[in-house]
Design a protein around this nucleic acid. Structure first.
Lengths: 134, 134
DNA sequence: CGTATATACATGCAATTGCATATATTATCA
DNA sequence: TGATAATATATGCAATTGCATGTATATACG
């Protein structure tokens, strides 16, 4: 499993890089933001969802803001916190990334596994992974 | 699958660090060396088996040599190459790491999956991962 | 209240990484 | 054979990471 996921990750990152797209972790963040919709998320929420460490999140959000994919604003309720909002450009980039990422996943998994196996893999992973919303 | 393996990896690394043991990638290298037995491996062989990049391997081998876990020697057949040999200390460290690593894996997987599921997971991963010996 | 503690996020610094390229050696082939 | 390409490994440098800690705000509690 370690070998399988490591090789998957490496290949996807390489694929994205080849197309001049941001690294995969940006995708995860953009995706969580879109998935959350109207519920604005805080860095903390994204940490839980993506499993990135606090300081990693702090820095990647800085870079993503600099790249214009998200907006960071101070919260009024909790002045320690910040809200993270995806921009239109962020949505566009996520979609482009998915074209690359999704296509890759589909090719790789469909090439290796039967439909029934895919669904049982999905079940197994659901049991193994930590909850998406702790 | 990404979430599952990322969380596994992070937890294992943390566990190893807590016990003052080297990071997981050292384990993989030590394990491949033991598994190869008498066949001495070259950095190149280890790259393929562990999926580490060439420059990563070059550096991690340097650190492992400095730590006394392996020995590096020039080859006579191919003077560009080097042979990597595990030391007694290297074996000892690998065994200690396995105590930590293996116990963790067993706990985590046995806690989440039934025996039949474990075996089907194993099959699925075998189909997904690249060959161990390309 | 006021002080201690916990939470949210940021950051300086040293270590590590990735990239590009260097060095040394071997293989190819006109 | 000599020039050219390919292979095996190492490394300088800039970017990124992890750790430890900093700053600011919020909560708890005597």
């Amino acid at each position: 499993m370690m070998r399988a996921s490591r090789s998957l990750l490496a290949d996807i990152d390489q694929q994205l890089k080849r197309q001049g797209l941001p690294p995969l972790e940006w995708y995860d963040i953009l995706w969580e933001l879109e998935r959350a919709g109207a519920d604005t998320l805080r860095p903390q929420d994204l940490e839980q969802r993506t499993l990135l460490a606090q300081y990693q999140m702090s820095r990647v959000l800085g870079r993503m803001e600099a790249a214009g994919l998200i907006t960071l604003a101070k919260m009024e309720q909790d002045k320690r916190g910040r809200t993270v909002t995806i921009t239109a450009e962020g949505s566009r980039v996520r979609a482009t990334m998915w074209e690359c990422y999704g296509t890759f996943l589909r090719t790789r998994f469909d090439g290796a596994l039967e439909p029934a196996q895919l669904s049982s893999l999905s079940d197994l992973m659901a049991q193994l992974r930590p909850d998406d919303r702790p």
